[in-house]
Each structure stands twice: as C-alpha cells, then as structure tokens.
Design a protein around this nucleic acid. Structure first.
Length: 109
DNA sequence: CCTATGACTGGTC
DNA sequence: TGACCAGCCATAG
C-alpha cells in the first residue's frame, strides 16, 4: 500500500491539460510500469489523484475491466484542453509531461 | 512462502 | 502502426 502513495504523489505533479505515461511515473517512482497501472486501478476518491492524466505509451487510454471509466477519462482530458486524434490517441509531443527532468518533453501547446 | 494476475514497456518482425 | 514475446514488481489468494 505504501508504495502506491509514492506513485500517487508523482501522478499529482502532472499539470492540468497535460498527460504522462505509466512508464514515466514508474521510472520516477522507482518501480515497474505495471505497478503504476495497478496503483491507478486502486485509486480511491479520497486520494485526489488525477488518474485520468495517465495514459499508456501510445498516448491512448488503457482499456480496463469495465471500459466505463475510459470514456470518463477522455471526457475529463478534453475538458482540460487535451486533444485526441482520429485514432483516439493523444499527441505526447504536445501534451506529454514527464516527472523526470531528464525526459522533460518540450511543453507548450 | 509461492503462484497467478495485471489501467505496462521495450525490442523485434 | 500492429502483433508477438519476455521482463517487470506489488498485491491478492
């Protein structure tokens, strides 16, 4: 459980209108990408984690069990100004954000 | 303690 | 881009 807090903390750093990937958070948190995904799946309302700003490396929303939160996630991102292309992907060169300064993608939209 | 599972990733074809 | 495969590590049972 404690490890999730570390992951959540990184996730909370993601600026509004930007997205990050499981891999980037994983690298910053010092754990595997799957654990980040697992942590996101375990997020509770009280955690105040912008889980919707976390997508996979394709800039696409990872399909999960219900598939319901998927549309909800997309809706929230679009509300923050994130744009999805025709394939339902986000342009990580424009909206991608890395918690690691070394990988910091050129921000700005 | 050990095995199964998973909102993943990176290399190769 | 997409499909396939192997590695990844915390949780659950």
């Amino acid at each position: 459980m404690a490890d999730y807090q570390r992951i959540y903390r990184i996730a909370r750093r993601v600026p509004e209108g930007r997205v990050t990937t499981y891999g980037w958070i994983a690298r910053a948190a010092g754990c595997g990408a799957r654990q980040v995904g697992y942590a996101m799946a375990a997020v509770k309302p009280n955690d105040r984690v912008p889980w919707h700003r976390v997508v996979n490396r394709e800039g696409r929303i990872s399909p999960r069990g219900g598939g319901e939160g998927e549309s909800r996630q997309r809706g929230r991102l679009e509300a923050e100004g994130v744009v999805f292309d025709a394939s339902g992907r986000i342009d990580l060169d424009r909206f991608g954000w890395s918690p690691d300064p070394d990988l910091e993608e050129l921000p700005l939209v």
